[in-house]
């Protein structure tokens, strides 16, 4: 199943130029599925980094604007969009100059995959 999901993610990555990697992790930051090319820094895949996103999501949800949908961080070489899909965190890593608006549509495009992962986690 994991290989099938990875192939589907790769297909979606091909249709969105500039996307370098997609990681689906659990709330603790443990990567469940990851697809990336060699340009993505290894640090992005570390549970320490991914779990900090979960923490930031929780904290920002306390601002009084409702549940956090996504967090965008734009760096020198890459931009990362983290989607809060409880109990998962979907992270999309792309080039800095990539269109952020299009990256935000990936939440819907990847919804079948995140649903499958969520179901698998809940069964386990």
């Amino acid at each position: 199943m994991a290989e099938e999901l990875k192939r589907s993610i790769q297909e979606i990555m091909k249709t969105t130029p500039g996307v370098r990697g997609i990681v689906i992790a659990d709330r603790d930051g443990v990567p469940i599925i990851r697809v990336n090319d060699e340009t993505v820094p290894e640090t992005v895949m570390r549970p320490g980094f991914l779990s900090s996103v979960g923490f930031a999501t929780e904290q920002s949800s306390k601002l009084g604007y409702g549940v956090t949908n996504h967090i965008i961080s734009i760096h020198e070489r890459h931009q990362i969009v983290h989607f809060n899909i409880p109990p998962l965190i979907l992270s999309v890593i792309a080039d800095t100059e990539c269109n952020t608006g299009i990256l935000l549509t990936l939440r819907n495009e990847l919804s079948d995959i995140t649903d499958a992962v969520r179901t698998a986690i809940q069964v386990a």
């Binding site: 269109n99 952020t100 608006g101 299009i102 990256l103 935000l104 549509t105 819907n108």
Partner: peptide, 9 residues
């Protein structure tokens, strides 16, 4: 608003 990215591209 969801189409903003595609329209700008």
């Amino acid at each position: 608003p969801a189409a903003s990215g595609y329209l700008s591209e």
